[in-house]
Amino acid sequence: MLRILSGGLEIFSGLLLVALMLITGVDVIGRYLFDTPLSGAFEMTELLLGALVFAALPLVSQAGGHVEVDLLATVLPERIGVYLLWLAAGITAVALLFFAWQLYGLGLRQAEDGTRSISLRIPFAPIAFFAAASCFVAAIFGFVRAARK
């Protein structure tokens, strides 16, 4: 199940990245060659970049790609290093679950208020819900990674 979810996030992240490149390319070519920039390109870029960050967050947690300072792990016995790994996974999971909870609440408020982007009128609630789910999945992936070590 986690492997399927991970693969889906990898594909989705790649599609978001391609969309960002296409929008930027069309906007730059339109702006400088035809004096007609892509309408809403800045807003689309902002939203897609935010979605890309949250789409990649669980993948980074799964791969252990977060910045880690292991000054103590190199001088302490290996047994204690395992406990430190679990402690770090627990603290990270608590932080990610807090973010998920806050983003879910934000999504509910945005859905209730009908909050949308300024120029393209894209609703914000689905993005907030996606970010909340992504933080939740990242917390799970972090624990799974700790359990494998």
Rank of each mutant, 00 (worst) to 15 (best):
2 L>S: 13
3 R>W: 10
6 S>H: 11
6 S>T: 11
8 G>M: 00
9 L>Y: 01
10 E>V: 11
11 I>K: 15
11 I>V: 09
12 F>Q: 06
13 S>L: 00
13 S>K: 02
13 S>I: 00
15 L>V: 10
18 V>R: 15
18 V>G: 12
20 L>Y: 07
21 M>H: 13
25 G>D: 02
27 D>A: 04
29 I>E: 03
29 I>S: 08
31 R>Q: 06
32 Y>F: 11
32 Y>R: 03
34 F>P: 10
34 F>Q: 14
36 T>F: 11
36 T>P: 11
39 S>F: 13
39 S>V: 12
40 G>P: 00
40 G>C: 01
41 A>Y: 00
41 A>H: 00
44 M>D: 00
46 E>N: 07
46 E>H: 05
46 E>L: 07
47 L>T: 06
47 L>D: 08
48 L>S: 07
49 L>K: 15
50 G>L: 07
50 G>P: 06
51 A>E: 09
51 A>M: 12
51 A>Q: 12
51 A>W: 07
52 L>V: 01
52 L>G: 04
52 L>E: 02
53 V>S: 09
54 F>G: 10
54 F>E: 11
55 A>D: 07
58 P>N: 10
58 P>E: 07
59 L>P: 05
62 Q>I: 10
62 Q>D: 12
63 A>Q: 07
63 A>V: 07
65 G>S: 02
65 G>R: 04
67 V>Y: 03
67 V>G: 04
68 E>K: 15
70 D>Y: 02
71 L>N: 09
71 L>Y: 08
73 A>H: 09
74 T>N: 13
74 T>D: 12
75 V>F: 03
76 L>G: 05
78 E>R: 15
78 E>P: 09
79 R>H: 09
80 I>N: 13
81 G>E: 04
81 G>H: 05
83 Y>K: 15
83 Y>N: 15
83 Y>A: 14
85 L>E: 13
85 L>H: 13
85 L>C: 10
86 W>A: 04
89 A>R: 07
90 G>I: 03
90 G>W: 01
91 I>K: 09
92 T>Q: 12
96 L>M: 06
96 L>T: 01
97 L>F: 04
97 L>G: 04
98 F>L: 15
99 F>S: 15
99 F>T: 14
99 F>Q: 14
99 F>I: 11
101 W>H: 15
105 G>Q: 12
106 L>V: 09
106 L>H: 12
109 R>Q: 15
112 E>M: 08
112 E>P: 05
114 G>E: 01
115 T>A: 09
116 R>P: 00
117 S>F: 01
117 S>I: 00
119 S>G: 05
122 I>R: 01
123 P>Q: 01
124 F>V: 08
125 A>N: 04
125 A>C: 01
125 A>M: 01
126 P>H: 01
127 I>T: 11
127 I>R: 10
128 A>L: 06
128 A>H: 09
128 A>C: 09
129 F>Y: 10
130 F>T: 08
131 A>N: 06
134 S>E: 05
136 F>V: 03
136 F>A: 13
137 V>H: 06
138 A>R: 02
139 A>D: 00
140 I>D: 10
143 F>H: 14
143 F>W: 13
144 V>G: 08
145 R>G: 06
145 R>W: 04
147 A>T: 07
147 A>V: 05
147 A>I: 06
149 K>C: 13
